[in-house]
């Protein structure tokens, strides 16, 4: 891959606390246009790694490159970030907090005002912009944090646990916003989370971190396809006994216990799904459901971090 297509790359990134390696020899690569999920159990080193990338904390060795730039200050020129829960000056309004941040993004005057209005509209906070940030709900603070990160039109957005502590509606809103930023604004996004379903919903690539080390990295599709586990289906029939007998007589099929809604869970490593369906039809068993169970990121995660 050409260097210009890499948004973020770390090589051998290592951060120690005493003798403990919080991040160890981390090689991460995020392509332009990716929505990259940075996964790991609590304490895996995700936030430490992101802080190293953003220059908030020092690292002992390794290299961080963002859009080809390695200088710790210059490499942040195209970056917007939220690290953990965004913090604000509680006594200042949402708009004034953004005005402060605009100065740090080298925006001033009418340009800053226009940009603040744009990001407020983008996250749907225009009506509450005059209220003190201290009066905002957690979800609103998260959205204001994203608005702040969007000031100056960054090409890379780093979001550390952006849905942490939010209620289901707030989580949905933030997820939709992230999805829209990637699709409509074409922003490369790195999102750290331990919510695997969330990552599977919005990310195209993931890196899985454990004990500070990268255990797996790749596209979500390739990670789900990898591992060689047998395909699984839940099969339902009004005549459960006949179904069970038919399945037991089939080659390349294993019964795996009770599935959802009283169906029979079936592993079919030696028979593809059309073959299994045809075999059941040939056996003249009445079938009311064949539900393929896809491997999800949770299984991959548990395998990788076992």
């Amino acid at each position: 891959m050409e260097p210009s297509e890499i948004a973020l790359r770390t090589q051998g990134l290592t951060r120690r606390y005493g003798r403990r390696e919080a991040v160890a020899e981390l090689d991460v690569s995020v392509n332009v246009g990716d929505v990259y999920g940075f996964l790991g159990p609590n304490g895996a080193g995700k936030t430490t790694a992101l802080r190293c990338m953003l220059g908030l904390i020092r690292y002992d060795s390794g290299r961080v490159e963002i859009f080809g730039e390695t200088d710790p200050v210059k490499r942040l020129a195209k970056v917007g970030a939220i690290v953990e829960t965004p913090s604000f000056h509680a006594w200042m309004s949402g708009r004034d907090n953004l005005r402060q941040a605009a100065a740090y993004a080298s925006l001033s005057g009418a340009e800053a005002d226009a940009e603040i209005q744009r990001v407020l509209e983008r996250v749907g906070l225009t009506e509450r912009a005059k209220d003190p940030a201290g009066s905002y709900s957690l979800g609103m603070r998260q959205r204001l944090g994203i608005a702040r990160a969007l000031l100056g039109r960054p090409k890379l957005l780093v979001l550390d646990e952006p849905t942490n502590g939010l209620d289901p509606r707030g989580m949905h809103e933030v997820r939709e916003l992230v999805r829209s930023l990637a699709l409509n604004d074409r922003i490369t996004i790195v999102i750290s989370s331990h919510l695997l379903a969330e990552v599977q919903q919005i990310c195209n690539r993931v890196g899985i971190l454990q004990d500070g080390r990268l255990r797996a990295e790749g596209s979500v599709a390739s990670l789900l396809a990898a591992g060689g586990a047998a395909p699984i289906v839940d099969v339902g029939s009004p005549d459960r006994a006949a179904l069970e007998a038919a399945l037991r007589g089939m080659a390349g099929v294993e019964l795996a216990g009770m599935g959802a809604e009283g169906r029979i869970r079936v592993l079919h490593p030696g028979l593809d799904l059309p073959g299994l369906t045809a075999a059941l039809v040939r056996a003249n068993v009445p079938i009311d459901a064949i539900v393929p169970l896809r491997r999800d990121l949770e299984e991959v995660f548990l395998e990788v971090t076992r």
Binding site: L54, G55, L56, V73, K74, R75, L76, A77, V79, A81, V83, E84, T85, P86, S87, F88, H89, Q100, A101, Y104, A105, S106, R148
Partner: peptide, 14 residues
């Protein structure tokens, strides 16, 4: 301590 300095330092400023 309030973590607001962090928000300034994730910008390209020395």
């Amino acid at each position: 301590n309030a973590r607001t300095l962090r928000e300034d330092l994730v910008r390209p400023v020395r």
